[in-house]
Design a protein around this nucleic acid. Structure first.
Lengths: 380, 380
DNA sequence: TTTTATAGTTTATCAATCGAAATAAGTGCC
DNA sequence: GGCACTTATTTCGATTGATAAACTATAAAA
């Protein structure tokens, strides 16, 4: 779609919102002459637009920004039932939304998704740009070429060539990604971690997802399995002997203690309410049994994050907590454990960001898969 | 020194040893015409040379290879006392070697190193190319711009601008790096992991070093501390309560169980010989106390490696064992623990490579710091 | 010997980019 | 208001790096 130099410009502007031509020359390393030519074409194609003037000494500079309606993207989250479809613009802002109950077979499921696109488009209040890509976030393993779902317990799919199948149904390019990876890409592109080249994310919900941005790019790992932290051996005091067995066959996995399901199960067993919000409430008021359960989960999570920080040395770690866990208590406990287990470095420490999971986070991340292709080109 | 396209050529040839011009056109994506021009210049400058012909159908192709004497590099290891200086050629082969007792102050230490260079050069039997870079591997933290040693307990240095100081002493460019990082770069450039874009290394000696190659590049982490695995919480059965306290203040760190020092200490306490080779011998003949100590160390290491594989998903993990630990027993125990703790993936597993640490591994890695600059350019 | 296949070179050409000069559009001072 | 000064952006000719296509070289196969 664009030349490498144009992608440089789009990337830079997408990161910082708006930039003058001279700013662009500075960050891209291109000459002002080139920037002039390139931006002229991008403005001509409706991708960039001139914004307000910035006055200083001399001639004021003209800020350039992305035209929100130059293109739109569809993000689809298969992470949970129902499937969520989100239409976003070039700024990553949602413009329309819909839900679909999930079908079993992948053919029916994908066909319905494509058939739903016109409805989705019609729901956008304001006019939007042409759909230039579809991103899909799914729970499971994705092949290295990112066309095929190798295996997904949640969906019951194995070896489904999603990109290939969608290509037979419509001619909008499609991109798939593991759900945690989609989520972190969303944060990197349009979220709080904009422009941050080295950070990790860990998302706690019914499962535990984790992903890394290394050197500005998503680190997928050799088999696309980087970030599989659920089965990290996080043995707490008492050793593995007392720990719960995990479905992976080991004992003491993070998953057996720190997912919502694990917390609920522990609460049930202790005769406490299995509703997490209620449990958190009890903990806040000082009920020791409730506190103990949450503390166990938070400690395990903290230890896993500490291991991650030691090995990876990210500049930031984003901890996405399910809304049920939000509030001061749980987050603080995690933070405390991390701090206790990370060795001090001579020049600073990873910063933790506690965040409540957004309702459409996965779908939004999925949309940013397509946005990423549009704005940065294929190489990323 | 070279244009980006020339670096592409040098990189490709360095990886595979020799390539024909047509091969180069294939892997670099450049046209045959460009390759023709570029190689002509590189041959003219004495960097590349024509090797044997390969006959097939049609005109035979001429293999091109790096001229070993086009340049040489000095690698300096401050990892242990004495300091080791190694002179290597473009193939990474050692051509001269010397040792220096380590001096306390950084000024005296660095000055002596520079003064030793003529001696080092004179010890090369065959003539070598001009020294085009000095690489230094040091135990400790290196600043993000890789000019300064932020802090090193072993050396007793803090905030020493090594690169800046060396620039005042001689005008050969110098590059510094953390010792584990230098070691892995050596493996990537001239060792068994040539051409592998995603792998990790863990080196067990008096300390435990770890480093990662991600996407073909060294992953330093935000504060240059990626790979600090020594203090990974590796709690074994029995929980943290029984675990030894670590100098970092925590309990159950990998370092307290799996370094040579830790193994020696455990042996002493059990009334066994503190010589590791002897201990390994006893374990091999079935002495349970000796086996238990080694098993404890190997398990801890295996768990840490399993955590690493889960989080990073490297294609390979190189385990460098001190020569004292070499032999079947210890390595097999590590391997077993790793396999027990890594979750199966749908498309393959990380491969473990057990390797005996080379005597001059760190110095050789340090030399490859400079070689990397020469062959790949500054961007890597 | 002729044909065919593949490797590498030459040459005319193209597209991206640059440096320098020109132009645009303000501020501040008299 | 007018002039000096500053900074942003555009224009233009020149340069560079890479290319396609035609050409030469050199072998195996027929």
């Amino acid at each position: 779609m664009f030349t490498p130099a144009q992608y440089q410009i789009l990337t830079a502007i997408s990161r910082s919102g708006t930039m003058s031509r001279t700013d662009l020359a500075g960050v891209t390393g291109l000459s002002k002459a080139s920037i002039s030519m390139l931006t002229k074409e991008l403005i001509g194609r409706g991708i960039l637009g001139e914004r307000e003037l910035v006055f200083g000494q001399g001639r004021p500079s003209v800020l350039l920004g992305l035209e929100a309606n130059a293109a739109s993207f569809v993000g689809i989250s298969l992470q949970a039932d129902p499937t969520i479809l989100l239409l976003t613009d070039l700024h990553g802002a949602p413009r329309a939304r819909m839900e679909l109950p999930r079908r079993r077979g992948h053919e029916q499921c994908l066909t319905e998704l494509v058939e739903a696109l016109p409805t989705l488009l019609s729901r956008a209040g304001q006019p939007v740009g042409p759909i230039s890509g579809i991103g899909i976030a799914l729970p499971g393993f994705v092949s290295r070429d990112r066309t095929t779902c190798l295996y997904s317990t949640a969906l019951g799919w194995s070896n489904v060539d999603i990109v290939g199948y969608l290509a037979t149904l419509c001619d909008i390019p499609a991109y798939i990604e593991n759900d945690a990876n989609a989520l972190i890409l969303g944060e990197q592109l349009f979220g709080i971690m904009r422009d941050c080249p080295d950070f990790s994310m860990i998302a706690v919900g019914d499962g535990i997802g984790c992903a890394h941005i290394v050197d500005g790019r998503l680190h997928r790992g050799h088999n696309g399995g980087a970030g599989e932290i659920s089965h990290a051996p996080v043995v707490l005091d008492g050793g593995t002997i007392g720990a719960l067995p995990c479905r992976c066959g080991k004992r003491g996995c993070l998953e057996t203690v720190a997912t919502l399901q694990a917390i609920r199960a522990a609460a049930r067993q202790a005769g406490l309410p299995s509703d997490i919000a209620e449990l958190a409430q009890m903990a806040q008021t000082g009920r020791p049994e409730a506190l103990a359960i949450l503390h166990r989960a938070a400690s395990a999570l903290g230890i896993a994050i500490a291991q991650l920080i030691q090995m990876f040395d990210p500049s930031h770690v984003v901890i996405m907590l399910d809304t049920a866990l939000k509030g001061e208590v749980f987050g603080a406990m995690v933070q405390q454990t991390v701090e206790a287990h990370v060795m001090r470095r001579p020049d600073g420490q990873a910063t933790l960001y506690l965040r409540d999971a957004q309702k459409d986070g996965f779908a939004s991340g999925a949309a940013s898969l397509a946005a990423q292709q549009f704005l940065f080109g294929l190489d990323r």
